[in-house]
Amino acid sequence: MGVIYGYFAAADDDDAVRAVMREDDEPTATGYDGFDVNGMDPTVDLLPAEVILSGRSAETIQADPRYGHLLATADDGQLLCLSLTDALRDALAAADRGSLSLR
């Protein structure tokens, strides 16, 4: 079994931390729009998508301080919450279904 990555929409970084560092005994990201995938690392596998969607170079993206920025960690590092860049967030928000379909 590989690593399970959970992606969810949060209002801001503090909200994302609250989604992961639960104080109500609910599972991580409960109540947030999201999904889980096996083996889709945001700092590796989403980089080509961000290059295409944002029009920025891989080098520019990797130099962005929000690229894979650690927001929270729990369970001795077994659970991490990382940020996506604002450019990727904005590109995904502006994208329509047709621009995101695989061909």
Rank of each mutant, 00 (worst) to 15 (best):
G2S: 14
I4H: 13
F8T: 07
A9I: 14
A10C: 15
A10W: 04
A11N: 00
D12R: 11
D12V: 01
D12T: 02
D14F: 07
A19T: 05
V20L: 12
E23I: 09
D25Q: 05
P27A: 10
T28A: 13
A29F: 06
A29H: 01
T30F: 05
T30Q: 06
T30L: 03
G31M: 07
G31Y: 01
Y32A: 01
D33E: 12
G34F: 00
G34V: 00
G34E: 07
N38Y: 09
N38H: 09
G39W: 10
M40Q: 06
D41W: 03
D41H: 15
P42C: 00
P42R: 02
P42S: 02
T43C: 00
V44E: 14
D45Q: 11
D45S: 04
D45Y: 07
L46D: 01
L47M: 01
A49S: 11
E50W: 06
V51C: 05
L53Y: 10
S54G: 08
G55W: 02
R56D: 08
T60G: 03
A63C: 05
A63K: 15
D64T: 03
D64W: 06
R66Q: 14
Y67N: 03
Y67H: 15
G68K: 01
G68L: 12
H69A: 15
T73V: 05
T73S: 15
T73Y: 14
A74V: 11
D75G: 14
D76I: 02
G77L: 13
G77Y: 09
G77P: 00
G77N: 06
Q78T: 15
Q78F: 13
Q78S: 10
C81I: 02
C81Q: 06
C81R: 13
L82R: 08
L82P: 05
L84T: 07
A87T: 07
L88S: 00
R89Y: 04
R89L: 01
D90Q: 09
D90I: 01
L92P: 05
L92G: 04
L92W: 02
A95D: 12
R97M: 10
G98L: 07
G98W: 10
G98Q: 12
G98D: 15
S99H: 12
L102R: 11
